[in-house]
Design a protein around this nucleic acid. Sequence first.
DNA 1: CTTGATTGGTACGATATCGCACTATATAGG
DNA 2: CCTATATAGTGCGATATCGTACCAATCAAG
Lengths: 149, 149
Amino acid sequence: MKDNLDLSVLFDVFKEIGIIEQLSRALLEARLPDGLIAPHFSVLSHLINRGDGATPIDMARAFQVPKTSMTHTLKGLEKGGYVTLRPNPQDGRSKQVWLTDKGRDLRNGTLQAMAPEMLKLVSEFDTDRLLAIAPVLTDLRIYMDAARD
Amino acid sequence: MKDNLDLSVLFDVFKEIGIIEQLSRALLEARLPDGLIAPHFSVLSHLINRGDGATPIDMARAFQVPKTSMTHTLKGLEKGGYVTLRPNPQDGRSKQVWLTDKGRDLRNGTLQAMAPEMLKLVSEFDTDRLLAIAPVLTDLRIYMDAARD
DNA sequence: CTTGATTGGTACGATATCGCACTATATAGG
DNA sequence: CCTATATAGTGCGATATCGTACCAATCAAG
């Protein structure tokens, strides 16, 4: 009985997480220029946080998506002038992804554009509760990541 | 400064939620028959939880997806024999979605197939922490749902 | 009733995701 | 060195998502 209870709580957690993901993605994409969606933004953000010059395969692994998906996402970013792909001098098979100023500006501008909405949320939602769930979500993500076969 | 701190925590929360959504979806889809993905399962589950006979537009609203997407998802379920679409006697424009035994079995069987993995998570992860975040996630989902313009 | 506006559903096209197959390059074993 | 294997990237096809346009049925105003 206790197991059943716990399992339904767990399924509920995943269900709520799915909905929140959908809503937060919509919030983000409403602020992106036409033709760009969440994965494009995530890639720009990753390049700013971790430094650019990474290879496409590195980023595919970081996001846990197939390399074909990353190729496609990068093609979209390159077409819009947000990143530049150059040959990797260390490995003739691969490339390196470099941010352009336009890419940096888009990422930072989008964050700023979302700030009002986020500040509103922080002001209207119990901040302590948000702070409390953050580490649990991180640990849950780490657990599931490790459990992935 | 405090605002900035809170905002980065909030962005982190959304980022972790995005990753957990991806991992939990992969967990689910690994147990679904070929050609079915998470939205198919969600529809079956919804029909079991809320009762079948709902119209496609009802379900599109429930999942907050465009009606064209729901048409497509239902077409896949119907093709596999998991649901039946019948004219709505109350409204000549619309249809009703009915579960088949095969649809019910798939949903229940998939839940059972995931149970071991979920039980493992529950046994290895601090259950109290999972129980603690559940209501916060629900309230956050409710808040964001209401804030959606 | 009649007629204009609204609503449920679908066809279609654009883009996204991802598995498979292929090429080019790199690496490891001998 | 040579050769077998592994790896990075891409082309292609199948399916998914979703906006636009459209049709048929309903509803609402008179």
